[in-house]
């Protein structure tokens, strides 16, 4: 890379808990690729779905506090691994371009916020700023024999005018990364279909139905695993996979990776740094199969 890549890093609440491994692997992969992430020093919650269901100015105020911090770091762009955080931060910036709305939001804050910074997803900077071909060059342990489907979830690239990333119906960013890592990618037909989002607690039945359909489809196309880029998608498919099996009478044992975890493995990073052990559905068999394939190839 010619130019050093520097970003403010907004981890989002789930990275301190249920998506610990996404945070760990995102940091590890960026470090391995010499991408500098500096944590937003005193970041707070973006408000996620609940805030925007109450009021748009409340939602934007919660996000604007964070954008303002990024601006004061002297960096012009911020990355977040989480699509929900990303959507909120981007929506706040976009809506606050309207003066009336900006005043309404600034009214809720201690001081008017500078919300001019761009926010991108970790996936977007890896694909657009770092580049697939550069990733390909860094692969030391190809994922030979791994048959994987890429699941993007609903808001990583929607709405298009706001997110401005990848194809609306058939995004390819993760597919292309997986292919560069040496995996066999099977086209996943429900790439942008919703998993049930945050209804896991209040309406579990919804998640059972929607995430169940995703797992059935992934199984149907012969995927050994799915890769995701969203904490909520990953949690619904991984942590709730047993619940789904029980509710739907299915027998899935499908590992659900964060794409950064598989990247880390291919870059030769140790499993521990990538939080592989923190996945609920054990990926052991799948990972062993990759190792076996590698050995066979070497021999």
């Amino acid at each position: 890379m010619n130019k050093p890549l520097n970003y403010a890093y907004y981890p989002g609440c789930s990275s301190t808990g249920t998506s610990l491994e996404y945070d760990m692997s995102s940091r590890a992969v960026c470090a391995a690729l010499d991408i500098n992430l500096t944590d937003v020093p005193d970041w707070s919650c973006c408000g996620s779905t609940p805030a925007h269901t109450v009021d748009h100015s409340l939602s934007s105020a919660l996000s604007a506090r964070n954008l303002d911090q990024v601006a004061s770091m002297g960096l012009d762009s911020c990355v977040s691994p989480c699509p929900s955080c990303l959507a909120n931060l981007k929506t706040a910036k976009h809506r606050m371009e309207d003066a009336g709305f900006r005043d309404k939001v600034n009214n809720l804050l201690d001081k008017p916020a500078d919300t001019r910074v761009e926010t991108k997803s970790v996936l977007q900077i890896l694909v657009e700023d770092y580049g697939i071909e550069n990733i390909r060059k860094k692969v030391v342990k190809p994922l030979t024999g791994l048959v994987v489907g890429a699941y993007y979830g609903c808001i990583l690239n929607r709405p298009a005018e706001l997110m401005q990333f990848d194809d609306l119906e058939h995004p390819m960013a993760m597919d292309n990364i997986m292919e560069a890592l040496g995996a066999t990618v099977v086209p996943f037909p429900l790439k942008v279909e919703c998993c049930g989002a945050s209804f896991g607690i209040p309406r579990k039945d919804v998640v059972m139905r929607l995430s169940g359909k995703l797992l059935d489809t992934a199984h149907g196309i012969g995927a050994m695993a799915l890769v995701t880029a969203c904490p909520l998608c990953q949690m619904n498919l991984d942590m709730r996979q047993n619940q789904i099996n029980k509710a739907n009478g299915s027998k899935h044992t499908m590992p659900i990776f964060y794409f950064t975890q598989l990247m880390g493995l291919a870059l030769g990073l140790p499993e521990k740094e990538l939080g592989i052990g923190k996945l609920c559905v054990s990926p052991r068999n799948v990972l062993d199969a990759i190792d076996a394939n590698l050995k066979e190839k070497a021999a």
């Binding site: 609903c154 808001i155 929607r158 709405p159 609306l168 942008v192 279909e193 919703c194 945050s198 209804f199």
Partner: peptide
């Protein structure tokens, strides 16, 4: 509604 945006898209 989970604001999944498929309607909008």
């Amino acid at each position: 509604c989970a604001t999944c945006e498929s309607c909008t898209a």
